[in-house]
Design a binder for these strands. Structure first.
Lengths: 244, 244
DNA sequence: CCAAAAGTGTTTCGTATACACCCATGT
DNA sequence: ACATGGGTGTATACGAAACACTTTTGG
């Protein structure tokens, strides 16, 4: 049977969002549309690639479908290829039924994605698939190897967070230093001394202070900062550093 | 036509080797076996995956075929998926002829590999495919997008070299500090102050000095060191570090 | 005036960088 | 004795880490 999609290769996306109060979250969807009887099995947003589509385009298409978001940070981080990763139970049967294809093995290319939760609230998420955000500690058992994909995605995010300017993908354009710190702590999983953190950030030429402060808060209003990507790119090119 | 291999997914490997005199090298093979008339087109070692084979096993199998080497460092670093990456010329025709399959699109999973050149000399390389080592500046135009794969492989190696203990994969068990420095310089592409380098290495608990020196050299014999991987793993687990 | 979060300085320690000469061996 | 690469020490500057109190606003 000819299909327009390539039934050997899929894309799955670990969509991370950050909420100032509730911390780091990940987006999960139902295995099937709402009108399907087999609800309650959760999975990552993902799908087969189309036959003549670049993977990055597939990832963007899928992300758009489930969140309504375009032009968001997307990073390929691993390939999940175990020939047995689909198991041989109910989930594989569901996949075969849904596609009408005798799926045997699917290699999936995993991406992680960073979205500004404050902009894209639950209201824009796919209702058809009951997409919703889960705290990192609330993630239930998912289909296939999707829990493992999340774990490795988080590990990759934690690692790349140290060398890439990822925090700014999770924040509004104007942000405060304390917001930056809360994100860093949520992702890295440990707490950071506020004074030292501020000193470190203030040394970074690409984090630019604005002459603008919070309004309407019942405490000392915080100063806003923005991220200057051009400056960052220039400085990064000059930087060499041994870690080990 | 049924095949035992999966004609949609391949593995390509950028095999890096280090030679103390000649610097960093990459392994290339002929597109076809020696007895094939179409010689002279060069490519990376690579092939389709088998249908029920893990990618890592495919990579090991391919590496073994072309170098005779097993149990070597192998790192997945990127996926090359452009639907047009095979072009529509002679190389695609060759691939279709060779496989007897109407190949349309192949997504390739790229690995880089690090081998100790001093152990696996040219004599063990596949003669059938005329495998040989090329200095990084001598690499000619290759088939498909293989030049791009090498470029991204090298960039990944340079990046990961800073945070992973990769240098030891390119060195004999017992090595000297100056060998370590030459490798670092070759991979990173800049030179390093010898005194400061030695101080840095001597601080590393997992680079252990032996009571053993070079023999038969016509200069002051260098002390040998070994890499203690267990110590490294323990220390790494404790380490957290901001770079940016 | 109280609650709540923002913002501030100093000391100590370790590591990065810059830089020039003596040492041990084989021939 | 000489050629060859191996090996050493010091001074300066910058960043990491530890640590407690004052400031500004709204209610």
């Amino acid at each position: 049977m000819e299909t327009f999609f390539n039934p050997y290769i899929s894309v799955d996306i670990v969509v991370f969002g950050f909420d100032d109060n509730e911390g780091l979250k990940v987006l999960l969807i139902n295995r099937s549309r709402r009108d399907d009887p087999s609800l309650k099995r959760l999975k990552l947003p993902g799908n087969f690639i189309n036959k003549k589509e670049k993977l990055h385009d597939s990832a963007n298409r899928i992300l758009k479908e489930f969140t309504g978001i375009k032009n968001i940070y997307l990073k390929q981080f691993a390939v999940f290829d175990d020939p047995g990763r689909l198991g041989d139970g109910d989930d594989l049967k569901w996949l075969r039924d849904r596609t009408g294809t005798e799926i045997e093995r699917v290699v999936t290319i995993a991406y992680y994605s960073l979205v500004k939760l404050h902009q894209y609230s639950e209201t824009e998420l796919s209702k058809a698939y009951n997409a919703r955000w889960f705290g990192m500690d609330e993630v239930p058992g998912l289909i296939f190897d999707h829990n493992q994909i999340i774990d490795e995605g988080l590990a990759t995010l934690q690692k790349e967070f140290l060398t890439e300017p990822l925090c700014f993908e999770l924040l509004p354009k104007k942000f405060t230093i304390n917001q930056l710190q809360r994100i860093s702590e949520a992702i890295l999983g440990f707490s950071i001394d506020n004074r030292n953190f501020r000193k470190r950030i203030n040394r970074l030429e690409y984090v630019v202070a604005l002459n603008e402060r919070q309004t309407g808060v019942s405490h000392k209003p915080a100063r806003y900062y923005i991220f200057d990507r051009e400056k960052f790119d220039i400085l990064k090119r000059e930087h060499t550093g041994f870690i080990i």
